[in-house]
Design a protein around this nucleic acid. Sequence first.
DNA 1: ATTAATTACATGAAAAGTCATTAATTGAAA
DNA 2: TTTCAATTAATGACTTTTCATGTAATTAAT
Lengths: 151, 151
Amino acid sequence: MRFVDDYLSYLLARASHQVAREFHAQLKPHGLSVAEWRVLATLVDGDGLSLGELADAVLFKQPSLTKAIDRMERDGLVKRLPGAGDRRRIRIVVTSRGAAAVRGLLSRAKLHEARILAAYRPEEVENVKRFLRDLLMRSAKQEEGTARRQL
Amino acid sequence: MRFVDDYLSYLLARASHQVAREFHAQLKPHGLSVAEWRVLATLVDGDGLSLGELADAVLFKQPSLTKAIDRMERDGLVKRLPGAGDRRRIRIVVTSRGAAAVRGLLSRAKLHEARILAAYRPEEVENVKRFLRDLLMRSAKQEEGTARRQL
DNA sequence: ATTAATTACATGAAAAGTCATTAATTGAAA
DNA sequence: TTTCAATTAATGACTTTTCATGTAATTAAT
């Protein structure tokens, strides 16, 4: 067996890549890029996130997201609003045009997931998801620690 | 719970991103970029892969890899060799300089993985890896099918 | 055999991402 | 308060990726 085929990071990267790519084929008809889909799908549950929070959520670096939001704002999918309280922050919200663009895609996304996961027992799927969520939680906790240590 | 927190594609993307990012911090001292690490780590088990095969293995689009290999060749990490038999293909091989650059990193990578997975029962880890490998296999098979259908 | 279709890699222009830095605001310390 | 450090987002120069296409080699069809 090759090194990478038993290497968690590679298995995750490849699985993520494959699953995402299949779905992304469905985005084109809706006129959305991958970045736009991710931003909108995140904002439907988190309207009003700051740019930094959103960047973290969609796994973008901050300057990349600034520019992605520039484009999405130009295309009328989202809007920047002044941050309440702290005037450095901005809140990013979905416009009605943006909402219309994701409408339908969320259910298609879940459908796509369901088709993939139909091959497995529900219990097995839950175990994997629990594992991934736990991994993320631990990793986030650990980062907090190292961040604090660097002060 | 937010949409994305129960969405397989997102959990995979985020887990992949986090795990990879932790390790990538260790690459800088070795003077390797993420792309270079992935290429070299793949080639240690698969010296002589064609450009297309390698692009698929490292999840790059073909033109992106062509240019990445241009840079790596310029830096003396890999070399292009003429493809045996088919003269359109090229075989990409690691130079001794490239081999020296990954040496040590492979064990560090496994160590990093071990540290992350220490929190889980070996059986659980194997279940997750098996799930991922199976997912990849099915997805590849399905792609074959749709590719053939498009003819 | 010749032509046509396909496959593998390279290339060039355009788009997007990244790093380092800046400006503005806030929070904390003296 | 005034000053200093930290945080938030924007910007600019630079690098990398991407899309569409080009070129050469191979395979298939007539």
